[in-house]
Write a protein that binds this DNA or RNA. Sequence first.
DNA 1: ATATTTATTGCAAATCATTTGCAGTAATAC
DNA 2: GTATTACTGCAAATGATTTGCAATAAATAT
Lengths: 142, 142
Amino acid sequence: MTTQRRLILASLDALDTHPTAEELHAIAVQQDPSLNLSTVYRTLRWLEQEGLVSTRRFDEPRRQDRFDPMLPSQHHHFICKSCKNVIEFDLPALGDIQQDFEHLHQVRIESASVVFYGLCTACNRQNGPVESEAERELSQRT
Amino acid sequence: MTTQRRLILASLDALDTHPTAEELHAIAVQQDPSLNLSTVYRTLRWLEQEGLVSTRRFDEPRRQDRFDPMLPSQHHHFICKSCKNVIEFDLPALGDIQQDFEHLHQVRIESASVVFYGLCTACNRQNGPVESEAERELSQRT
DNA sequence: ATATTTATTGCAAATCATTTGCAGTAATAC
DNA sequence: GTATTACTGCAAATGATTTGCAATAAATAT
């Protein structure tokens, strides 16, 4: 437990978002201007191994990891394709689904991730439905 | 519709896995040795825009995209953390869950991704349960 | 069919998030 | 306090993906 790790943890806990390593660094560096981005990455990966943080790879234009402080209860995400806002939610129904799956396929599930992509209330009003276009060309696909 | 795109599509359809761009290129290049990896990427991104392929970012050591030919019915994935094998499955129950969520939060869901991580039957036998370790240090976290 | 316009390719170089080697420094054990 | 070990900052390496550009192939108009 070093000063830097403590700071990074504190910054992470202060946020209620899913920051990228860069975002987290930008916040923590305000307290310790010499804090390096590699240290943030190293700490995040360490926390991940300890099971205290999980890495999320939401589909985004930038192909950047986002880090999610792992709460006791598993939670899931809705992501607005337009404004990238995130809604977190629980999914109690998932427990049964997982169990069924485990029995059916004889596997052990350790974690689950559910992500919904769509448009949030605000963006839904602005964005009209999108027209698909070149599907014709490809109609020979099975 | 060029020769290259047709070839890439054919190679993708021939596979029943979720190849990386590299893997797909390796296969397609057997038919056309001059086929370039950038063309594979460009074609894949084009298909993605057309809604015919979706990009999956499973958590893996290598931070590589995997490409999934989009079938009419949405399907989901179980990934073995040890051998990385994938089991695909449908989840009819998800429809209702999505609808409930849409009403509750007044949003529009366009797509959903469910991923289970765990151990497959074979790997489950070999790997013992893992011991967590430094949680003590961090017990002051909320 | 042929000429012209437009889209796509191959290649090499650029990008950008993330990782790593290493020398210096802080933390912990003795 | 000194020794051992782990962690940090920095700069450079890595590796997947993207992009500029000149050459080429496809689509379109003639």
